[in-house]
Nucleic acid binder design. Sequence first.
DNA 1: CAAACGATCATCT
DNA 2: GATGATCGTTTGG
Length: 204
Amino acid sequence: MPIDVPLLLDQTRALLGARLSHAGVTVRITEVEAYAGETDPGSHAFRGRTNRNAVMFGPPRHLYVYFTYGMHHCANIVLSQDGSAAAALIRSGEVVDGVHLARQRRGSAVDRDLARGPARLTQALGLTLADNGVPVLSALPKPVDEDAVVLHEVAPAGALESGPRVGVRGPGGDGALFPWRFWLAGDPFVSVYRPAAPRPRSGT
DNA sequence: CAAACGATCATCT
DNA sequence: GATGATCGTTTGG
């Protein structure tokens, strides 16, 4: 069963402007990227299910957290139909609650950079591999567990823009084929674009 | 101001 | 054994 790409992109764009909360910090999401599972050369799921990406193959509205570069965590929300391995990487946001906590977690960063970038955002929210696979709850009338991950979707405000995904090499990084990075137009809390670097040579 | 680079380890081949 | 959906610092113009 092929992935419904238009649905995936709609669900990804719908995350813009939403509030994501965990462990005392809330961010307003300003930038996201769509990943279409096994059909997408940029996706961790492209080469099939592994222990790391297993959560992507599970039910939607769960968190896929991975560890990379020996020091960074990044967080995705699993989307679309069960088993399709579709997900959205949460790339940037503005801390709108729990700023003091976020500052503690982010060290000497200026406020604009508290959650601008996928690893920064994940650190500001206090998410780690321990949160891989946890459900993403909807905002409820009752207060939920302080350590739960909660997503509160709101009506998107303003225009959206799109472009190539960041840091993806090969066909998956081709902005003409996969213009699957979305952000709030003109928002200062959006990461700076860095083209995927060609791999450094080992010899000569 | 921009470009280069080192950090540091889970995961996959 | 190589690589990475990155970041912060350093280096150079």
